[in-house]
Simulated scan of single mutants.
Amino acid sequence: MRKRRVRAALLSVAILGLLPLSAAAAPAAAAPQRAPVGEARIVIHQGTSTGGRVIAAATLYCFPTGGTHPRPYSACRALARAGGDIGALESVRRPCPMVYRPVTVVAKSFWRGSASFVVRGYSNLCTAVADSGGVFDLSRRTYG
C-alpha cells in the first residue's frame, strides 16, 4: 500500500515537473518563420521561345536561403549584388562552347517589395549561366 502511494506521488511530481517544459515548448514551436528578403522563380525553355519544352525550373528564396535551386547560397549572393533585379545580374567570365542549342529563360524576382521580370534568349545554356552570374544554373552537377 505504501509503495503505491510513493509511486503515485513520484508520478505526480514527474508529471507536474514536465508541464512547465511542455508549456514553454509550445509557443516556441508555433513561432512564425521569418519571411525571405527576396525570392525568384526561374524557368528555362528549350528553343528560341517560351513555347519550347521546359528543361529546368527552380524557386529560390533568399535570407533565409532555400527553395529548389541547386545552389541557393551562391545564387542569392549574386541576386543580392544586383539588388534583387534579375535584369541587372552581373555576368561572369567563363568559357562556353560555340554550340547553338538555344534556350529561353523566364525569370521573375521579388526583392524587398520590388519586382523584376526577364525573358531572354541565349545561344546555349552555358551562356545563360555565365550571363546571369550563375543564377540560371539549375543543373544538378558540380563544376570543378
Rank of each mutant, 00 (worst) to 15 (best):
K108L: 01
N124I: 00
S132M: 12
A80S: 15
R120D: 11
V99N: 13
V106Q: 08
V129Y: 06
P97E: 13
G121Q: 10
I86A: 01
I86Y: 01
D85F: 04
R112Y: 01
C96V: 09
A115V: 12
R120T: 06
A107G: 02
V105W: 00
E90P: 14
V129L: 08
V92I: 15
F117Y: 14
L125P: 07
A130W: 09
R94F: 15
L125G: 08
Y122W: 00
Y100I: 01
Y100G: 09
R93V: 12
L125C: 00
L89A: 00
V99I: 14
P95I: 03
W111C: 01
F110L: 15
G113S: 02
Y100C: 09
C96S: 07
R112H: 10
A107H: 03
K108G: 13
A115P: 06
Y100T: 12
K108C: 01
V103P: 07
G87H: 14
G121H: 02
D131W: 05
G83N: 09
C96I: 13
V118T: 14
V129H: 09
F110G: 13
R112S: 09
R112C: 05
V92G: 12
V106C: 00
V99W: 08
S91A: 15
A128T: 05
F117V: 09
S132V: 03
R94M: 15
A82G: 01
Y122A: 04
R112W: 03
A80I: 02
R94K: 07
S91K: 12
V99L: 14
S132E: 07
Y122C: 08
Y100L: 14
I86M: 06
S109E: 02
G87E: 07
A78I: 10
V119L: 02
L125D: 11
W111L: 07
R81N: 05
S123G: 14
K108Q: 15
D131L: 00
A82D: 02
G83P: 01
P102E: 11
Y122I: 12
R94I: 12
V92A: 13
L125H: 11
V103E: 03
L89M: 10
R112K: 15
T104R: 03
D131R: 09
F117G: 04
R94G: 03
G87R: 15
A107T: 12
R94H: 10
M98G: 10
F117N: 15
V99Y: 10
S116P: 09
G121R: 05
V106Y: 02
D85E: 12
P95R: 07
A130F: 05
S109A: 15
S132C: 07
G84V: 01
G87A: 12
E90N: 15
S132K: 11
R93K: 14
P102N: 14
V119Q: 03
S116Y: 03
V118Q: 13
